[in-house]
Amino acid sequence: MAALRRVLRALATPFTQTAGLGRWMLVIGLVITGIFVLLAIFAPWIAPYGFAQASADGVDFPKAGAPSGEHWFGTDRLLFDVMSRTIWGARTAIEVVILSILICVVIGVPLGLVSGYYGGWLDRVLLLVMDALFAFPSFLLAIVFSFLLTDLFGGSVLAVAMSLSAIYIPQYYRVVRNTTVSAKEATYVEAARAIGAKDGVIMRRYLFGNVIQSVPVIGTLNAADAILTLAGLGFLGLGIQSTDAAEWGHDLNRALADAGAGVWWTGLYPGLAIVLLVTGLTLVGEGLNETLNPTLRKRRLLPVVMTTREDR
């Protein structure tokens, strides 16, 4: 009961501690993101058709049919329903993003902890590797990794998520490593050593809780970026194929030819979905940053009023 209350209070802190613009950014971002998450979870019930469904009740859908009562967002050249694909696309996007952030956290955070805590040559080598990854244009890196990984795992959600992780892990690593380097000098770490704690225990129970705090911010900001990279990969035809799952970037690629023929609906809706979700996630990230990052947090100051000086 007390634990639940503590969790709820912790979840509410971004609201209670922000004011003005920061709070609105957070609220609007959460609402937009929330809608997409709901779409993703309930896609089978919300979407009128399947993502690779070209006919219903034995009747084929029209080819590149304009929006109508049957097909609100129209249909595309492969006879798929655009609205269904847009909704199912939310599921793919959210799946990939959550999976890739999970991979990033699971790999990047422990690496950062170990590297920052032990230092020495391990730290040097890891820093070098991570900085090298950082220095690459991230999209190029994602392309290379998705080439490699689709060979191994096929064009699955997992393969794409992993190739996205590869470009974001250095960020998690960097942030966690740097906070660890400063946190390990704290007296409470020496106190932990004084009670006889092993290095593993110190990292898990003493450092982890204190260095993890900046990870949610990076997570949400990276999520927005990951959506764009995912769409970019799909647009290039890498990653997920249209019969495996609905993917906005891939749909945009196919819509490219339609645009000249006056078929606007196949490109508009997936594109709009990307813009909206990226905006939502960015707003959440910036809002969180404003709350959690004390250097950005604005405190309301009252103007100092001096008593008027008497003329002598």
Partner: peptide, 28 residues
């Protein structure tokens, strides 16, 4: 055992009193 100079720095800010004291037993 050791007692430190600055009690504010010697306690992990993300552990409750029970956890902090109990951790000495837990690691042993």
């Amino acid at each position: 055992q050791m007692v430190f100079q600055d009690p504010s720095a010697a306690l992990n800010p993300s552990m409750t009193v029970a956890e902090a004291v109990g951790d000495a037993l837990r690691v042993h």
